[in-house]
Design a protein around this nucleic acid. Structure first.
Lengths: 202, 202
DNA sequence: CTCCTGATTTAATAATTATCTAATTAGATG
DNA sequence: CATCTAATTAGATAATTATTAAATCAGGAG
């Protein structure tokens, strides 16, 4: 029954210790004891989590003498959970200086979308229907918000109303595309890694 | 902290009742009582799960008199979990007859990949390095396996060895791309909805 | 205001599960 | 065989959580 498999897949990723294990493994293979030390838990706990990660096909293992080295099964993660992937690979990508750059063509697309959908006064004419363009517009809007600051719904509405009257739709789009998150009526920016990345859309 | 958010997202999808709710909502909006009846649980249980789904931004709601109608927030699901999406939309897609068709261009790509990577005798020359082509090859191989039948590792190896000597790699690829799953040393085919879909790769 | 309906809250129970310690297994090496 | 190291298992505990029944809340309709 696939329902059970999907549930188990998400169960495997629904624990902070297991996600931390995956983050560590993203930098290279590690054995159980080392993982236990780095995470401040006992080897028995690692065994417990490794069983679940293995059952969900998220890791592979390799035996060398009596040491077992774990490695990520990254294909699986990449094809199944964009946000999780972003979280796991954040440090690796950052240290290699891969992210943050944008090629020329994307830059041109971006400029032209912004020119077409915003007036000279900086008002948003309309929200693009095409997903790729919409994401460009949303990212542009959100880039003017302060990182780490919590906005009340009223404040956020006011911010949006400066550029467009339909604040409700745009506020919802911020949430849907994970530019922001809401917690007890307070909105806050998500880190860029969690944003829908229009660069990679066809 | 984003770790917590990713964990909570997966927690929201890590329960069978909640996935069933999403499956029902994929066919259209429903109110709490109706959901309770269809799932054989009490309204209180629905409230409980709705809270979690709402916190994870997976559903939206609309109030009409004292009835609350829930709807899917499908953008969020689509961008976050391919397998979950496939499961949720399976019935809807199937009833509308959307899936199972392939456009002409994809058909041509497929034919040419199969011609290039298989000999006239049906042996696999090599596994393509490019993901899209690799998926075509894997899907072709897997299409000769029996649905619903459990294969032992030995049987599966033998099957693969008929077309290629490196059975271990190919067996692993079957698992990684979710063409098959393994349970207690037994392999079985996954339904096509769970397969990585090469049609949609750039 | 009273009744009705649907949703929520509360409190209790049962099941799951993350973690630990202690004991055991597995493999390698002297 | 004795020993060492890494991993696993077993058993126990604590925390989380899915579920329910019962009480309460919210919005209409008469």
């Amino acid at each position: 029954m696939q329902l059970e498999k999907v549930v188990n897949f998400h169960k495997a990723l629904a624990d902070a210790t297991r996600i931390k294990i995956l983050i560590l493994l993203a930098e290279g293979e590690l054995n159980g004891q080392t993982l236990a030390e780095k995470l401040g838990v006992t080897p028995a706990t690692i065994t417990h989590h490794a069983t679940k990660l293995r059952d969900a096909a998220l890791i592979n293992e390799r035996r060398e003498k009596n040491t077992i080295y774990f490695t990520l099964n990254d294909y699986f993660i990449k094809s199944n959970s964009a946000a999780t992937e972003a979280l796991i690979y954040r440090r690796v990508g950052a240290s290699k200086g891969e992210s943050g750059t944008m090629n020329e063509e994307n830059q041109r697309t971006r400029d032209s979308v912004l020119r077409n959908f915003f007036t000279a006064e900086g008002k948003l004419k309309s929200l693009p229907a095409q997903l790729k363009k919409k994401l460009i517009v949303l990212e542009h809007l959100v880039s003017r918000l302060e990182k780490g600051r919590a906005y009340s719904e009223k404040e956020l509405n006011a911010f949006i109303k400066e550029v467009h009257e339909d604040f409700a739709t745009i506020r919802r789009e911020f949430i849907m595309h994970q530019f922001m998150y809401r917690e007890r009526e307070v909105y806050e920016l998500n880190p860029p890694e969690l944003w829908a990345r229009w660069e990679e859309l066809s």
